[in-house]
Write a protein that binds this DNA or RNA. Structure first.
Lengths: 209, 209
DNA sequence: CGCTAATATCAACACGTGTTGAGATTTTCG
DNA sequence: CGAAAATCTCAACACGTGTTGATATTAGCG
């Protein structure tokens, strides 16, 4: 293979965008520390030094990737507006759609989230723990149908989310409160989740579309 | 086979424990990749090579740290048992106590959780995003008292927890379900959280002790 | 054309990493 | 005691990292 041509290449300038997209994908897949400049450069088909020339440092590149489109924020904010009736599902639906469904919004958001997670074996540990310990232990004391298992899983995920918010990310309003206050607040929500009322039970139920 | 105790007896096996505790603290503080063998060794006051002699590799050391005391599992499992009335708060309380209150159980659990989180700037990004974007956007459409703000924070934490369980850790039962099913299930719980019924409102409320 | 600025590659630096082998020191036991 | 084994330190290896300076090639413009 002949030596790759040096110097500026003819035609339109798409390289900057390619680097950014490669970085976004890598950060979202491997996390921040595990992602290397050289790998991003290889994905984009350029030299590592060029990446450093576009963005002064790895941190700045990461910052450029983190830009969340305002559309996502708007869609999530809108869901809070409206009648109190059905606000729970409305917010959950909007939240999940923005984070999972639409690639244009989920890409940077997941990059941010997964960027904080080391793609080490620890994620596997976490999964095993939640599945085998938390959920299996809970299912032993409850009914063992599909719907109940799902509800336990969602409850476990919610609880872990609270721990993350309090102990790891340390979101002020949530982290500042006492354990008892949080337990009381979250407990009421979990109560509805674990002992569903009539109108919100059933597995394959379709949401009001 | 009779155990021929040859060689030096661990008369003072304090070093092994010191290494393990240093590793636990470091993993919990800095995460897995950011934690170095040399730093652990320095914390324990020994050479890095000794750490590698006790535990064959960094992965094995991490695995040794991850050992969750069965007491923690039992306490969390017990909470699911009992009457359906108050199961939500009972589970939440037990969960939070094990993860936050008791250092003997919270240390390895937080090490596992934080071990997966890179202590980079990304955690700060995450905090800013949750606080400034999610919570502030929601508060604009709701009342602005302390209790409401807390409930929004808990709701946001729960939602992020679900995303983590689905997209990052990929807990089977939760990740396999459709977006709509998850939204409907979680939505019902959030509904109770955001539009509280009479008996579960109020901030400084004491749980039934 | 010539000039400047933007692209792009290359080689290398300084550093930190996990890991290893040799060897010193201390303890235990036959 | 003397041998064996465990504990512990030291020095170094091989490697990958982010980052930098020099340099080559091209685009745009007067």
């Amino acid at each position: 293979m002949p030596a790759p041509k040096r110097g500026r290449r003819p035609g339109q300038n798409e390289t900057r965008q390619a680097v950014l997209e490669a970085a976004r994908a890598r950060f979202a897949t491997d996390g921040f520390t595990a992602t290397t400049i050289r790998r991003i450069a290889a994905d984009a088909g350029v030299d590592a030094a060029l990446v450093m020339q576009f963005y002064k440092s790895k941190d700045e590149l990461f910052g450029a990737v983190m830009s969340v489109p305002p559309e996502a924020l708007d869609r999530m904010t809108e869901a809070w507006k409206g009648p109190a009736d059905g606000i729970g599902e409305r917010v959950a639906q909007a939240f999940l759609e923005v984070w999972e469904r639409d690639p244009r919004t989920s890409a940077p958001l997941l990059a941010m989230l997964r960027g904080t997670i080391a793609r080490d074996q620890a994620a596997g540990h976490m999964r095993d723990f939640i599945e085998a310990r938390l959920m299996r232990g809970a299912a032993a004391h409850l009914r063992d149908d599909h719907d109940t298992r799902l509800r336990i899983g969602v409850a476990a995920a919610m609880l872990v989310g609270i721990i993350v918010a309090r102990c790891v990310v340390q979101v002020p309003t949530v982290a500042d409160e006492s354990l008892e206050t949080i337990a009381a607040t979250a407990g009421a929500a979990l109560q509805e989740l674990l002992t569903p009322t009539e109108q919100s039970s059933g597995t394959g139920r379709q949401p009001a579309s």
